[in-house]
């Protein structure tokens, strides 16, 4: 499951789920951005092999992004339609209309 640093960064709102299915840096130093890059490398590799023959990597990533934003817990960050970082509240998150 998640590494402690990653879990802590999510809980602390230093990172957030972007609409394109990748992780974004909300606030945090070089360590946080290096960790985010590492996670995104791994996500891209998963999307690349998962999208084979199904869709473009971006579409697959986008679809997953919708699920990830929907699954964010209260207090975690996610990217709103206008591109800015929102904090997940109690209710449903602001989702891209194209999400399934």
């Amino acid at each position: 499951q998640r590494t402690p640093e990653y879990a802590a960064a999510r809980a602390a709102g230093q990172v957030g789920e972007q609409r394109d299915g990748y992780l974004g840096v909300v606030s945090g130093g070089a360590d946080i951005s290096a960790m985010v890059r590492d996670i995104n490398n791994k996500r891209r590799s998963v999307y690349t092999s998962a999208a084979q023959g199904k869709s473009t990597i971006e579409e697959y990533a986008f679809t997953t992004g919708c699920k990830l934003i929907r699954d964010t817990k209260a207090g975690e960050k996610y990217q709103g339609l206008d591109g800015s970082w929102k904090t997940r509240g109690g209710g449903a998150p602001e989702l891209d209309p194209r999400c399934p």
Partner: peptide
Amino acid sequence: SRTVLGIVSD
């Protein structure tokens, strides 16, 4: 080496 984090993963 921390410098490799984010460059080479998995």
